[in-house]
Simulated assay, not measured.
Amino acid sequence: MVFYIFNYLFFTLFTVTCIFPFWYLFVNTVSRNDYVQRGIVNFWPKGFNIQNYLALKEVSDLGSAFIISVSRTLIGTALMVIASAFIGYLVTKQEMWHRSFWYRFLVITMYFNAGLIPWYMNFAMLGMTNHYSAYIIPAIVAPYNIILVKTYIESIPAELEESAFIDGASYMMVFRKLIWPLSKPILATIAIFGAVGHWNSFQDSLILMSDSKLFTLQHRLYIYLNQSSNLGTLMDSADSSTAKNAMEQAMNSKVIKYTISMISVIPILCVYPFMQRYFEKGIMLGAVKG
């Protein structure tokens, strides 16, 4: 009984600790801006208002940044899942041409990286800077996800495929009619990995994109974070009138920062509950074998 009490108490506190940052962010976005600026909003909203969310439509380029993030997440994740499933199935076939070589060539990319400068030069020479395809193409082949899919497919009884081949099915038909439906748990798992990676990614936008129309939502949030810091520095060295104007801008920038952060978090938080049952099953079965 004592163990269960401490066990439930510990995990309850742990859960609250994990949830509180998101709750703190939320209550600051629905409180009065002057209360937020003074730092007196902690556990409950004060001076409830939703104007901060309504005001986001006035933020320049935020709409295009949101569309870029959503589209790259949907398209990039879909292509990555399809590629991982197909390649993972191929490398399970012993008759694949030079199977061992291609599989090892794929795995070795997980351990060696050319570095940031060669990475940028490669994109520049391919003409992918300031181009939407830079968000999609490099992430299609994900070695770790392919390994998970391969391991999962190997756990499917071989007799199912053999019976399909006896009935005259081709490799593509077996993949579409048999392997793909049976692999839903692991495909849902890697879809979560891919979606989170695409949604949270901003380094490629920061380095490769100079056109503001191609900025992601995370890149836009990074810009507002920097603006808040710059305004804070300005207030330390300005006269009273300039400092007052800077304070007002900093207050607005801080609230915008919180609100955009909340909007950035909400989509991923909404995805997890629906994918949780697939995630647990897929990650366990996909990691059983080496």
Rank of each mutant, 00 (worst) to 15 (best):
I268Y: 01
F123C: 06
L54W: 10
F105K: 07
G286N: 01
V41N: 01
Q51T: 15
Y8T: 09
Q249F: 05
V255D: 00
P21A: 04
N230R: 13
L74Y: 10
C270W: 04
Q94K: 13
L160K: 02
P138N: 11
L206S: 07
K93T: 07
Y53W: 10
V141C: 03
R220T: 11
G194I: 04
M172W: 07
L208E: 05
N33L: 04
M173V: 06
V174L: 01
N130P: 01
A85T: 04
P185V: 09
S64P: 05
T259V: 03
A238Y: 07
I156N: 00
F215Q: 00
E162R: 05
V16Q: 12
A139E: 11
I82G: 05
L56G: 04
T233Y: 02
A134T: 12
V30C: 07
N42T: 12
N42S: 12
F279H: 06
K281H: 06
E159G: 14
I263V: 14
M262K: 06
I179E: 06
G282V: 03
I68D: 08
N245W: 06
H219V: 02
N130F: 02
V271I: 11
E280D: 09
Y4Q: 15
K150D: 03
W97C: 10
Y35K: 11
R72S: 14
V81Q: 03
L74W: 08
S205A: 12
Y120M: 11
M125V: 08
V107F: 12
N252Q: 10
R32S: 11
P143L: 08
G47L: 07
Y222T: 05
K257G: 14
L56N: 04
A65G: 05
F66M: 12
S133V: 14
E248T: 08
V2W: 11
M235W: 00
M96Y: 05
F101N: 00
L269C: 10
L54H: 09
L214W: 06
Y111F: 15
S84M: 02
G282L: 04
G115C: 09
M173H: 11
F3T: 15
V91Q: 06
L206P: 07
S31N: 00
F3S: 13
M96P: 07
V36S: 06
H98I: 11
L206M: 14
F3H: 15
M80P: 08
R277H: 09
L62K: 07
W102R: 02
T17H: 08
V107G: 08
L234Q: 05
Y152V: 04
K150Y: 01
V27Y: 06
V265F: 00
